[in-house]
């Protein structure tokens, strides 16, 4: 698929498959259109050419109601968490559930919020406001909020960006745990190679609006491509590429 903004092409022909219960990492430097890719998957942006199929449905051909029904099955973790800053952490996590299922009882909402926050290790943060949490904690709440509707697909937009190495490790472990517990398929957008190696079953790289690779981490970085090698060299300065 292709996507341009005005006369500036961003995605020039992306071809990518993600299978069930599989995590595919898309690497790429800033401004290459990685976030645009995930936004087309969830229908926030429409592609100019080509199609996006999610869970057997073509996103571009869906009505508003059908798209909403599909979105309930997709969890989206935003780069900057995008927590509702006027709500507490518990309200943030409960919000998608309460708004999408009017029949759900208060008790069930509370139980599911507790379970989601417990799965990311932040049950104690329920009454706090987003501004009172660290960046890593906010990312975890964002993931808990995405999980509350029990999605089949998870999209992680730069889940470790701007975090210290220890917190990055915790987020990576959480992404793996989510896949193992919920059996979700996932696309992880990142420029963090350690994260890619840790969470990805397959790794692709977005270069000049096209996907390169799509095999294992080692297969991608065995390729003789100048941008792939420089990406690796920057992240692992002491190691030769695999």
């Amino acid at each position: 698929m292709k996507k341009s903004f005005g006369d500036r092409p961003i995605l020039r022909g992306v071809d990518l498959d993600v299978h069930r219960s599989e995590t595919v990492v898309v690497l790429g430097k800033s401004g290459t259109g990685k976030s645009v890719l995930t936004k087309t998957v969830v229908g926030l942006l429409r592609v100019d050419e080509g199609t996006v199929h999610v869970l057997g449905q073509e996103v571009g051909s869906l009505t508003v109601r059908q798209l909403d029904a599909l979105r309930v099955r997709i969890g989206y973790s935003f780069q900057h968490s995008a927590l509702y800053d006027s709500m507490t952490i518990a309200e943030n996590v409960a919000f998608p559930l309460v708004m999408n299922d009017k029949r759900v009882s208060r008790g069930e909402v509370a139980d599911r919020v507790d379970a989601a926050l417990e799965s990311v290790g932040l049950l104690h943060a329920k009454p706090q406001m987003p501004a009172e949490l660290s960046g890593g904690q906010q990312k975890r709440v964002g993931i808990a909020r995405a999980l509350i509707l029990e999605p089949e697909v998870m999209l992680y937009d730069e889940p470790t960006a701007g975090l210290d190495p220890l917190t990055c490790g915790e987020i990576n472990d959480l992404i793996v745990q989510v896949r193992e517990t919920h059996h979700t398929s996932a696309i992880v957008i990142t420029h963090d190679l350690a994260s890619a190696k840790h969470v990805g079953d397959r790794v692709a790289m977005l270069i000049d609006g096209r996907i390169l690779g799509g095999g294992t981490f080692d297969e991608l970085f065995a390729m003789d491509h100048p941008q792939v090698r420089s990406f690796y060299a920057y992240n692992f300065t002491d190691e030769a590429s695999p």
């Binding site: 936004k39 029904a69 979105r71 989206y76 935003f78 995008a82 999408n100 909020r145």
Partner: peptide, 22 residues
């Protein structure tokens, strides 16, 4: 405006919540 630039409106949309209505 703040909700738009911090992607809170997008977050509603991807959660199948109509941000215009809400």
């Amino acid at each position: 405006g703040s909700m738009r630039v911090t992607e809170q409106i997008d977050a509603m949309e991807v959660s199948a919540i109509n941000p215009f209505k809400y």
